[in-house]
Design a protein around this nucleic acid. Structure first.
Lengths: 348, 348
DNA sequence: ATCCTATAGTTAAGGGCTTAACTACAGGTG
DNA sequence: CACCTGTAGTTAAGCCCTTAACTATAGGAT
């Protein structure tokens, strides 16, 4: 492969000149520039990134860190959407993505990852950091590498989905349809931190409507469809009068739909089901799922833009990404309510 | 950050000795080794990868290249599963993944990507290469970088899913259930090369059973659920006597289920639907989908192992990953057939 | 005519690591 | 005792690029 030297010889100038021309440093004539560019062209010269990295101390690589915590990482469409957003912004800015999925336990991330972070290979880090008990950003902070977290932990610079608002939108939608007997499928707090915020949003939504949130039965799932089915089964068996179930992710909501059907009832005629995340499949199942769109790609793009800000020595403020309620056919007014409305309508 | 020099000073030896100790080159005493290791420990020394890369010409980075061809890239669960497999093997071997998603058109991949490939940053490439009209591996080959393709194109070293066998399994399953009026939802060949092979498998399956494949109506979709619904609608309206629909991916199959329902018919009672890919959701929709498991993670792992083989100057042979037929509730014997069997049974 | 400034380009050091080539020495061999 | 060999460690060049510090020159101001 041709080097800077080769280009310099061919163009009849020094390596410094070539370097400066290529980096657009001022003070050279158009003629020189042309000579250099021609030599570059003819030789097919491409700068050697490792050499540049050594010399500049910058690699143009940013690490995208998804801790490998639970098996869901690679089956979670959300992760891919976030990655998509990061990728689009990253490649637009001429950076490269090094994908790292460290194993994380209570003593912290694995040592291979820690080495990577300290190896000088990485200009910045974007991490999905959402578990309270350990952070993949500890070694990053220690090393003083610019970092942005997508989540509630890790660094000063963070992008989060507005989970409170998402929960609020979901609850007020369901209550607004007239439901008053609502079951909730959640997951234990320690699995995913944002769940706390979604619950807080649900609670705020109930309060806004003047309904006692604590009266609503709750069961724990683990994000999986199966756990959603089991959870909904438990709810429906213990509280046959439920007219709506709020599930804190779409996959559990899909399980809940199955559970309703298995009991000979229908969605949304007998039971309204709403989910959270708006995974791609949510729009195309039967019935299409009412859910919350987290705008995952935008979350990723924001994180990258924020990282660039940090590179520029700014101190960007927390970005709270708005959520959007997507109303589809899985939610409807409860039967009794519908009757009342009909009656009321008739009596006019 | 401490450097090799610092370690050398502290241990009272030369930098060469430190380097050799760390790379386990023979000819040093246990005492020296201990001194060096202690200094490393005390200083928290971690080798500077850019410097090592420059000096060795190796970076321990492998590029995972997913051409950004169609919007489905980041909503395709298969991609993520393959990535999972690559990641697991890659991190086990102490390599890092640089994720690249070049924009690809008929003139080849974008120039940022080409620069990356030529930049000396990358030891090897694993690419998803499945479109006939251009290859992301062209620049890689030109540069002589070891590469493995997951797909039908690109290099001598390839890992493919055995699409022919997948098609064969699907067709013989459907015909074996007794169906003889079968519709097929496919996609145009030029979108995804493996489709040709799946079709060839379908044909072989039909021939094995002695059925005329060309008599089966076909429609084109584009992998999306919507296109599956539209395709199935077209098939069912033009051929109301169809008792089974084979869709060449799961998302289109899910659309087909909707189309069947929209016509007041049921799956699998009236129409059998089978898909391809076994995306995570396939097991949990209603009815659970009969489909083909491509073993995507294993595909990824194989690719990485093959790449290591190429590094070792071997010439690994094509790996054809077997597919597995997953029979779930969306496929069943056709109604008439069931009657006949019942009659037959009664008459005994 | 002298001095200064802005422009154009060069020289050479340095970034951190690997490794070929070399030195030094202890112990074994004839 | 001279010589060789295997072991232990060192020296220094090289990987390719960037950049601070420097030189050289032309033109304008005084």
């Amino acid at each position: 492969m041709p080097t800077l030297q080769d280009v310099a010889h061919r163009a009849g100038v020094s390596t410094a000149t070539v370097s400066k021309v290529l980096s657009n440093t001022p003070y050279f004539t158009d003629q020189t520039r042309a000579k250099v560019m021609q030599a570059v062209e003819e030789l097919g010269y491409v700068p050697h990134l490792a050499a540049r990295a050594l010399s500049k101390g910058k690699t143009r690589i940013i690490a995208v860190v998804f801790p490998y915590l639970y098996d869901t990482l690679f089956s979670d469409p959300l992760v891919l959407r976030i990655l998509e957003g990061i990728e689009s912004e990253t490649s637009r800015q001429g950076y490269n993505i090094l994908l790292s999925t460290p194993r994380l336990n209570a003593r912290g991330p694995d040592s291979h990852y820690k080495q990577l972070i300290q190896s000088g290979y990485i200009d910045g880090v974007i991490a999905l950091d959402n578990v309270p008990f350990a952070s993949v950003l500890d070694p990053v902070r220690k090393r003083g590498i610019p970092a942005v977290a997508i989540g509630y932990y890790g660094t000063d610079f963070r992008v989060v989905s507005d989970d409170v608002s998402g929960g609020f939108q979901l609850m007020t939608h369901v209550l607004g349809l007239g439901h008053r007997r609502v079951g909730i499928i959640t997951v234990p707090f320690n699995i995913h931190y944002s769940i706390q915020h979604r619950i807080a949003g649900l609670r705020a939504g109930a309060e806004a409507v003047g309904v006692d949130f604590d009266a609503f039965p709750q069961v724990d799932g683990d994000f999986s469809t199966d756990s959603g089915e089991a959870g909904a089964a438990k709810l429906l068996d213990a509280h046959p009068d439920l007219t709506a179930i709020i599930s804190l992710n779409d996959r559990m909501a899909m399980g809940a739909i199955l559970a309703v059907r298995n009991r000979g009832r229908e969605v949304p005629r007998d039971v309204t089901i709403v989910g959270y995340d708006d995974i791609p499949i949510a729009a195309t199942i039967s019935p299409p799922l009412t859910t919350i769109d987290q705008q995952a790609p935008e979350l990723g793009r924001s994180a990258m833009r924020m990282l660039l800000d940090v590179f520029g020595n700014h101190s960007p403020e927390l970005v709270k990404m708005p959520t959007r309620l997507i109303v589809r056919q899985s939610s409807a007014a409860p039967a009794r309510w519908r009757e009342e409305v009909a009656t009321h309508h008739d009596s006019r």
